[in-house]
Write a protein that binds this DNA or RNA. Structure first.
Lengths: 209, 209
DNA sequence: TGCAAATGCTACACACAAGTCTCAGTTATG
DNA sequence: CATAACTGAGACTTGTGTGTAGCATTTGCA
């Protein structure tokens, strides 16, 4: 399940290096998608050679990164119970989780998708989960939009914009937590944008459980 | 007003080359933001050396490109009469114009903004125009969102997503023109997303005039 | 028509990131 | 503790994009 899933398991410190590199790459690449491996190595506190040791190439590192993000999405979809919970509750919970897991930057996702195919680097499981969620929202009459592709293109866009919004924006209100306010804004905006006929309902299930 | 605004004016064919390069750069860079100057030159039907002759550096070319886009925005804001027309009509018209002028790809705009400052490469005039539009929308009660920054971050995001939407999406309906359908979808979505209390009103002024 | 300007083409210099290799020193783990 | 794994540091090759220069040719313009 790790980056390379090599034949023999890594030593503990090597595993730590891998994790630190991935974390640093996420942070650095979010700020500058064209950042050098050297800058990533610096941010991770390792030598550039070590990056090459843990990841056979830059491409491999990027793929590992999107793998991590995919796992986070999958984890979020699972925790939000998109298949069973009331759709609006699932959407709200999922949105909270996405902000908690800091899946704000779309730039990283666009790094692996080569310019030609323009394919979404989201795994089939993730897209299936999102499709299910929005289909259920539609069946419940919470949204009117019919195209699930449009639904989560818009959803991801709003998540991204809400993540980039400066912390002092009046849109975030005076609520306590920062991520909570962003999630709330995203939830309301998406539901309204996709044609919620009624004013957005409060979720009926657990909030920050 | 041209790319370099040199001391002496260019010959007619040189001016044409400049235009062709800019057009090619827009198309190629929209597909792949990391595209080579050589690929741009090929797409423009000129030699790479000519690109260097018309634009002193890659950076200069990118700046010229954003200049062009800024002009288009400015032109759109002017034609939409954002200062005088009824706000919803102005929004609708502006949206139409943005799609007609193919200002769909945000990738190009993000090319000039260096990763550090994260500044919007939109000119102050453009941002001022957009701010005015959304403030008027708010004052007219068409939207409830209070932060203009949030308003046009979301607006641009929706424009971008609508531009990327595949042509056969059910969201685009069976309307005649492609750009019209996208503009319509964008208009409705944005108005709803920003808290239009009522179902989005039809614009009261000229449509595709 | 004649001249200056613009272009295509080729060759070259330069910078820089990716990737490989070696070796000495450090750290985990049986 | 002894071995094997991991790391940092440095040197090195390679590939590639950018930018410059020269020269023959074409083209706009007066």
């Amino acid at each position: 399940m790790s980056a390379d899933a090599g034949p023999r398991r890594l030593r503990a410190d090597a595993e730590r290096s891998t994790a630190r590199i991935l974390a640093a790459a996420e942070e650095v690449l979010a700020a500058d998608p064209a950042a050098t491996l050297e800058r990533i190595a610096d941010a991770a506190g390792v030598a550039r050679a070590t990056v090459h040791r843990r990841f056979s190439s830059r491409k491999a590192l990027l793929e590992a990164l999107t793998g991590v993000l995919n796992e986070r999405y999958l984890c979020g979809l699972d925790q939000a119970r998109v298949a069973t919970a009331p759709p609006v509750a699932a959407l709200y919970r999922l949105t909270e989780l996405l902000f908690e897991l800091k899946v704000g930057s779309r730039a990283i996702m666009e790094l692996t998708a080569d310019p030609a195919t323009q394919m979404t680097p989201l795994s089939p499981e993730v897209t299936a989960g999102l499709e299910l969620l929005f289909r259920r929202l539609h069946e419940a009459g919470e949204i009117t939009a019919t195209d699930t592709a449009w639904c989560f293109a818009l959803y991801l866009a709003v998540v991204h914009e809400a993540a980039q919004l400066p912390a002092n924006s009046p849109m975030l209100g005076t609520e306590a937590g920062d991520v909570g306010a962003r999630a709330d804004l995203t939830y309301r905006t998406v539901l309204a944008a996709l044609g919620g006929g009624r004013p957005p309902a409060e979720p009926r299930a657990g909030r920050t459980a």
